[in-house]
């Protein structure tokens, strides 16, 4: 092994060798960058344009006049502000409940000793593969009989239920790295079950919590099927449903529609620009362990 390194040193090679044809690689990569970004760029520019610019004079250029009134219109006529707040409430509550319930369940499932633990764990893991469609009609009927459609709970409860399996799995993989000795020494120092959970486990699980929060955020913030069916009252519409309604009723003027799309997209992109690495790691954690 040592010989290999000297071989590298003699040849002046780096640990990760550069490619022979970086130009071709760059052309391919830049082409794909454009494929990814161009539609978004176009969306941003037409959100600031008037129809006659969008429809002919200036299709892909930057807007001649920056029409921020489109955003005002999307907020006032399209009610995007309200939908934004609704989405934030639903998503926030979903994240909170998912994190709390999944963390508690995960501790009981991985660290505590009781009969039927294995089976309970397997049942929860089954939830990973069950598509959300499977439950839509019964959940709708339950909600309707409880007169709970058109409320925040109508979305928060199912979103939390469907996020639990993934959250428990992610927490489980993090919890496996916490040595049991830590809990044992806390126990000797006089901690009870709850003391150990809150004082030892919880602080050590913070990175896992942010991973789960990110994962749950993306699911709840973007979910459409449940939201479209359970919510008909405009007071409780989330962003995806709001956008659907706005675009359905507002077909001729593209500017405000573009503005609404941008309003829904900016927060995600803003958060992403600050913590892209963490977000990517979270999604990897969610996939690979499944």
């Amino acid at each position: 092994m040592k010989k290999n390194y000297t071989y590298n040193e003699i040849n002046g090679k780096k640990a990760t060798p550069r490619e022979k044809f970086p130009l071709i690689s760059y052309i391919v990569l830049i082409f794909w960058t454009l494929v990814c970004v161009f539609p978004l760029y176009w969306m941003f520019t037409f959100s600031l344009k008037e129809n006659n610019e969008i429809f002919g004079d200036n299709v892909i250029g930057l807007p001649e006049k920056w029409l921020f009134s489109n955003y005002k219109e999307a907020m006032e006529v399209g009610n995007m502000g309200k939908y934004f707040i609704n989405s934030a409430i639903v998503t926030g509550a979903t994240i909170l409940f998912t994190v709390v319930f999944a963390l508690m369940a995960c501790y009981a499932l991985t660290r505590m000793k009781w009969r039927g633990r294995e089976m309970a764990n397997n049942i929860f893991m089954l939830g990973l593969t069950v598509p959300i469609h499977a439950a839509i009609l019964p959940v709708f009927l339950i909600l309707r009989s409880l007169k709970m459609t058109n409320s925040y709970q109508a979305l928060i409860v199912p979103y939390t239920a469907f996020a639990l399996a993934m959250a428990i799995m992610i927490f489980g993989s993090f919890m496996a790295n916490i040595p049991e000795e830590l809990e044992e020494s806390a126990c000797i120092d006089g901690c009870g079950t709850f003391g150990i959970f809150f004082k030892i486990i919880l602080p050590l699980m913070l990175p896992a919590i942010s991973t789960v929060a990110i994962f749950t955020f993306l699911q709840a913030w973007n979910e459409l099927m449940f939201a479209v069916i359970f919510i008909s009252d405009s007071d409780y519409r989330t962003l995806p449903v709001g956008i659907q309604t706005l675009c359905g009723s507002y077909t001729t003027k593209w500017g405000p529609i573009g503005a609404a799309l941008c309003i829904a997209t900016f927060p995600t992109l803003l958060v992403y620009s600050f913590m892209s690495k963490k977000i990517q790691e979270s999604l990897i954690a969610g996939a690979i362990k499944g």
């Binding site: 319930f101 369940a105 929860f124 499977a134 199912p158 239920a161 469907f162 639990l164």
Partner: peptide, 13 residues
């Protein structure tokens, strides 16, 4: 610990 998650899971899934 297990109760809230179990109720949601059983009731909704």
């Amino acid at each position: 610990f297990i109760f809230p998650a179990a109720v949601l899971f059983i009731g909704i899934i």
